[in-house]
């Protein structure tokens, strides 16, 4: 299994959506931490476990950009992502459901654009 701890590998205080909006953005997290580890897990056919616990809290834009952005920006295949990504959030159960909704939204948007 490939592991990421947002707290240990990134920041205690995840911030906004984009880099230019402030420090510790979702864009930065996706590009520097999440995407490389996800690619590593996909190549090694392992599960990527993202531990969301221990931070001060998440803004919605951070989560949407980090996880929804994998499909919207990085063109990661939805099925591959679904099979590879596992989320851990023992402190706050809302995040896991929220993140999967962002991923679904990004997939639906992409699908509808391709249909057009």
């Amino acid at each position: 299994m490939v592991n990421i701890s947002v707290l240990k590998d990134f920041s205690r205080t995840p911030g906004p959506r984009y880099k230019e909006e402030g420090s510790f953005s979702g864009e930065e997290f996706r590009n520097n931490i999440l995407l490389p580890k996800l690619k590593e897990a996909i190549i090694q056919k392992k599960t990527l476990l993202v531990d969301l616990d221990g931070v001060s809290g998440y803004g919605t834009s951070f989560l949407e950009e980090a996880f929804g952005g994998l499909i919207r920006v990085n063109d990661i295949d939805y099925k591959t992502l679904k099979n590879t990504l596992k989320l851990k959030s023992e402190e706050d159960d809302i995040y896991i459901e929220e993140i999967w909704e962002y991923i679904e939204d990004a997939k639906n948007k992409k699908d509808s654009n391709e249909t057009i």
Partner: peptide, 19 residues
Amino acid sequence: RRCPGIQRTLVELMHNTNN
């Protein structure tokens, strides 16, 4: 103590003003 709801609220509000 940490307050994830307050943290989210403040980040959302800052974000709204910024955007």
